[in-house]
Write a protein that binds this DNA or RNA. Structure first.
Lengths: 201, 201
DNA sequence: GGTTTGACTAATTTACACATTCAGTCAAAA
DNA sequence: TTTTGACTGAATGTGTAAATTAGTCAAACC
């Protein structure tokens, strides 16, 4: 009997292989046969971990966002001002996503065209989940008096919305510009938003 | 001999028809024969005004952005605070674009897939042209002491970038949400950015 | 004369029949 | 009990002939 660890390892290996195949072939041309061969397991075994091809790829995207959220939670706990945490969180949100799909040749929207309806549903969920982490930090800042008042969840959503156009989706990483430019732009947005959010002295 | 006015009228009629055909059929299925019939002129006459199908559709998009820019320049001259002008400009920028393609069933990105390379080039130009109008108002605000210092063109670009994800491009107007929601979100972004930009008293 | 046109052409797209490939299953092997 | 790959219907690709279309230009039209 495989241990839970082994099960998770295989699952992770499938998602790793998914990333490689997606970046080379896109969703349509990536086949479950290829995937199983790449992982070194039988085709049927893939279906012990996932119920469909669509679920595999969505899980891969989920994993990327989970990693981003993990990093956001880490920064949220750092021992610096709330403004600095929010700045770093926004920067990481944008750059981690950029780095995650940098090796993809097509843009995500086309790459995942067949999943579009489900993908849009997930994107909304991702957005809310990320916003909740931002909102927690904003709450702290408001309680400590560092940040001015306002609905923290609404403010968090403004932060994310303002940086959304810098995420790779309809534009590939390539089309978005080079990484340094993205970083620069994200910081500028963060700085102006934070200036608006910080309590005036 | 047709007058200049007649020439412009036909040109405008072609672009009007382009809008109708695009919204119903998309770029690929829209034919020049259809277009000429819709306008009530011969097919060859279409080519007296435009050099290619691609140029027709790009001119149609140009026209939308020209109308937006015209409205922005109008608001830029209004007799209210610079902050209020910037707020209204951002709102109009987003909502005019929303309204312009509200009747399209597909999203613009798919609708115009064949023009993608040229369209991306234009989008950059549109962005800069709009930013210049914003920058002018920011300059005024800085000179009058209403707004805090900083590179006005960079600040203008932050304003536009922050609202870019609310423009219909990879998402259709339908997918973006209803008009009131878009308006609400744009205003929230504008308000927070302006709070950051207004001179602290 | 200049202006407008639609028949024309090369190139692209479609339609269709057929072959191949694929997602997902499940009986058998491990 | 777990893993597998042969199997199946559905979907996708392929080859090819027919149809459509972007763009042209000689003739028709004022």
């Amino acid at each position: 009997m495989p241990t839970v660890v082994q099960t998770i390892e295989v699952r992770e290996a499938i998602l790793d292989a998914t990333d490689r195949l997606l970046s080379n072939y896109g969703y349509k041309k990536m086949t479950i046969d290829d995937l199983a061969r790449e992982v070194g397991i039988g085709k049927g075994s893939v279906y012990l971990h996932f119920s469909s091809k669509e679920e595999i790829v969505l899980s891969h995207i989920d994993r990327i966002v989970e990693r981003v959220k993990k990093q956001l939670r880490l920064i949220a706990k750092a021992e610096v001002s709330t403004a600095e945490r929010l700045r770093q969180m926004l920067l990481n949100r944008v750059l981690m996503r950029f780095d995650s799909v940098q090796h993809y040749t097509q843009n995500l929207n086309d790459l995942l065209a067949d999943l579009r309806p489900n993908l849009l549903v997930r994107r909304k969920r991702y957005f809310t989940e990320e916003a909740e982490i931002f909102a927690g930090v904003i709450d702290q800042g408001q309680q400590s008096g560092e940040l001015s008042e306002g609905n923290s969840m609404e403010l968090a959503e403004i932060f994310l919305l303002s940086s959304n156009s810098l995420l790779p989706f309809s534009l590939s990483s390539r089309e978005l510009g080079n990484r340094d430019e993205i970083e620069e732009r994200t910081l500028r947005i963060a700085n102006l938003l934070l200036k608006g959010l910080e309590k005036k002295q």
